[in-house]
């Protein structure tokens, strides 16, 4: 999620979210397949249409499409493969949402709101 979120950042997460937040919000969720606690950005919410493979996919009323900020080319340049996000594991259902990231409180010099995807 660099540069919006760096490794080691301390984040405040609102665990009371009852639905998927709006597009652009950063969320913590249980990743499908691995069940790991992961962090990604909401690219599309319930009922929206997302580009997938060679076509489109319409999200169910409780689903969101979560993506990494880094494009595949950037992760490849850093020696990694594609980001592990909805393009890999598909839509994420509401019961996997843990909370919405509100702001960063550490390190202090980076205190504040989370920047947009390509700020």
């Amino acid at each position: 999620m660099v540069p919006a979120i760096e490794p080691g950042d301390w984040l405040v997460v609102n665990p009371l979210a009852s639905s998927w937040p709006r597009r652009g919000a950063v969320v913590v969720f249980h990743e499908p397949i691995s069940d790991a606690l992961a962090i990604k950005r909401v690219e599309a919410g319930p009922g929206e249409r997302v580009r997938f493979a060679d076509g489109y996919l319409t999200l169910a009323p409780d689903e969101a499409w979560l993506v990494a900020d880094a494009p595949a080319a950037a992760t490849a340049a850093a020696g990694f493969g594609p980001p592990i996000d909805s393009t890999r594991f598909g839509p994420v259902s509401r019961d996997r949402l843990v909370g919405r990231v509100l702001f960063r409180y550490g390190p202090l010099r980076r205190f504040g709101r989370i920047a947009g995807a390509h700020a």
Binding site: V28, E31, L37, I39, A68, T75, P82, P83, I84
Partner: peptide, 15 residues
Amino acid sequence: FLEPRTTVQAHCDLP
């Protein structure tokens, strides 16, 4: 006291 108790991942594949 302020230190987070939980770590989340924003990982990529490492082929």
